[in-house]
Amino acid sequence: MTKAVLIGPPGSGKTTLGRMLAERLGVVFRDTDADVETVAGKPVSDIFVEDGEARFRELEHEAVRRALAEHDGVLSLGGGAVLDERTQQLLAGHHVVYLSVGLSDAVQRVGLAAARPLLVLNPRSQLKKLMEERRPVYERLASQTVVTDKRTPDELADEIVKGLPA
C-alpha cells in the first residue's frame, strides 16, 4: 500500500513535494507520468500529439493501476488521472493528498512555455479552466488537502507527514 498518493493540477508541486516526502519517509518516489513515458517510449507531449489524448488517458490509467498495486512509497499522479472513474475507484482506501494551488502560483510554477499538452492555446485561461473543472474531483477523492500557495516544500512536507495515518 502506498504511503501517500499526490493529486492536483499542473503546478501544484506533486513531483517536487513527492520526492521530498519520499525522502523524509525513507521510501521510493514514483510518478505515473514518468511510467507512461517509459511504456510509450516518448514524452507525454508527444503521446498527445501523435496518439491523441484518449490513448494517453488509457496508458495513464494502466500506469496508475499498476503503481497502486505494486508501489509502497509516495506516488504522484498526472493532473488529469483522477478524471477516469476507474482510477477514482482504485484510489479508495489509499491516503490521497490533494495539493491545492491558486492560479497565480500554478502559472508561476508551470511556466507558460512548458511542454504541457493541454495548456497549448492561451495557457493561463486553459489552466484556470482545468483547475475549476477538476477541483470538485480532487476534493472528493482527498483524504487530506494541503494548500500550497506561498509555502515552502519543507512546510508542506511537514504538514503531509503529520496528516498520514499511523
Rank of each mutant, 00 (worst) to 15 (best):
M1N: 08
K3W: 11
V5Q: 00
V5L: 02
P9N: 12
P10S: 12
P10R: 04
G11C: 02
S12A: 15
G13E: 07
G13R: 02
T16F: 11
R19M: 08
L21H: 03
L21G: 01
R24G: 03
R24P: 04
V27T: 13
D31P: 01
T32E: 06
T32R: 02
V39R: 15
A40Y: 10
G41C: 08
V44M: 00
I47G: 02
I47E: 05
V49A: 13
A54W: 15
R57H: 08
L59F: 15
H61I: 01
H61G: 05
A63H: 04
A63T: 01
R66W: 14
A67Y: 10
A69E: 13
E70I: 00
H71A: 06
S76E: 03
G80C: 09
V82C: 07
L83A: 12
D84Q: 11
E85M: 12
R86W: 07
Q89M: 10
Q89V: 04
L91P: 05
H95V: 10
V96N: 07
L99H: 14
V101L: 07
D105V: 13
Q108N: 11
G111M: 09
L118G: 11
L119E: 01
L121T: 14
S125M: 13
L127W: 03
K128V: 06
K129H: 12
R134V: 05
R135A: 14
V137D: 04
V137P: 04
A142L: 03
Q144K: 06
Q144S: 08
Q144V: 02
Q144T: 15
T145F: 15
T145L: 15
V146F: 12
R151A: 06
T152H: 15
E155V: 02
A157E: 00
K162T: 10
G163L: 07
L164W: 12
L164S: 06
L164M: 10
A166W: 08
A166R: 13
